[in-house]
Design a protein around this nucleic acid. Structure first.
Lengths: 224, 224
DNA sequence: AGTATATGATAGTATTACTATTAAATTTGC
DNA sequence: GCAAATTTAATAGTAATACTATCATATACT
């Protein structure tokens, strides 16, 4: 995948980091290798100490970029959703027909992720896998309400809102546009998780992707 | 809510515990207060040491019942799904008409939980809240595949299968019965979570329950 | 060359997630 | 009713985690 606009930078809530990891080489290596390591050993076993030794740096240096591993996860997830939103808007913006627009939107959010050459230090395929397996942990906390107020989930919420508006564009009388939008976004991650770990609980697989399932689900709910 | 069969005991995978907590007074107090405490401070902050002092017992005594807090969570979630399955089967078993059966099934799994007098040491309302906020953590781990093989998620999987079969009973040609079933079960928890913490991402609230939304969603997907 | 800034190395603290041991209390079997 | 078995409580100890603080060194900037 090639980016059209060379100057784009995914904007992430500044509160997720102490020092912008994009601002230095070490910062980028922290992000790059945190993705590799979380993907490999899982978020629960991941520590700054392990990350430090894997990049030949120091635990204390990582703390200068991120307060703790929870904030790092918020950074990674926000980056991911920002990146997804960019592709989402890019792919749907020029489509006039509401149904085609929504169809494209569902496709973009539920299709398998491919590498984006534009951000060399971020492996989007592995990051997507982290989102599938760890995203819920970023909001299933006792601090979710304060963190929500502080804006850590803005991009994700905006994505749901965009989808919700497209649903309303197709059927203004549909009574559950936000619920359906959140179901597609959350449910898509969940269906991918099930194909990986609980294949008997899903009909999705390599051939039948969540895109097929959710396209069918959404358009049967709406009056066209 | 009153139970009809006095002798029922919810069967939970024996591997979740070292010693059956139902077999002693201390065991029941451990379960009872773990629910209260996890509900209050969240699973992440919950420790056996804190639980011990809250029930006037000792950390080491709790380890004689549960290997660790993850296993305790597996016990609580398995108990919850076992309890839900009991109500599910009881409510739907006698219904002959496939559509009515499925309608009832969706209602049972997505309606708000009420207290069950039959299990005095378990507060099902608080436990339901724990399931909403913590269930994903029981399977979003690196050990999910081995634990799945060991049967820790059997009851949940059986629930999805039951719903899936009911969906097929209504429309044998529907191509995604398992995905739709897992979407309803998982999505229902998620919609409750959203009403609590992200009300702008859902149309569900006190009046419009997830039951309305999912009933609409499912029956519009199927050919009747 | 001198100063600011970034990074690295080391040490230290409180908490967690246990394990092991021993003592006390309670239950059970006869 | 007493001895034996079992359960629970108390204490101590270990390795790892999640940090904070301090100081040294390297690099970059003016």
């Amino acid at each position: 995948m090639k980016r059209l606009l060379q100057t784009i930078k995914i904007e992430v809530n500044r509160k997720t980091y102490v020092k912008d990891p994009e601002s230095s080489d070490l910062g980028k290596r922290i992000v790059e290798h945190s993705i590799l390591m979380i993907h490999e050993i899982g978020f629960d076993s991941f520590t700054f100490k392990k990350l430090g030794s894997s990049i030949g740096s120091n635990e204390s240096s990582i703390y200068r970029y991120f307060e703790n591993k929870h904030k790092l996860l918020l950074y990674l997830t926000s980056w991911y959703w920002g990146w997804q939103e960019y592709q989402f808007v890019f792919a749907t913006n020029s489509i006039a027909d509401p149904s085609e627009k929504l169809r494209k939107a569902i496709e973009v959010i539920s299709k398998p992720v491919v590498l984006d050459d534009s951000f060399t230090h971020i492996n989007e395929v592995l990051l997507n896998d982290i989102i599938i397996n760890e995203y819920s942990k970023s909001y299933l906390t006792k601090e979710v309400d304060t963190e929500n107020k502080e804006g850590y989930f803005e991009i994700y919420k905006r994505m749901v809102l965009r989808i919700s508006e497209m649903i309303q564009g197709v059927d203004p009388n549909y009574p559950y546009p936000s619920s359906l939008a959140s179901t597609v976004l959350e449910g898509s991650l969940h269906q991918y998780f099930l194909t990986q770990h609980f294949p008997s609980l899903t009909n999705c697989n390599k051939k039948v992707t969540p895109t097929h399932y959710f396209t069918h689900l959404v358009f049967n709910s709406l009056n066209k």
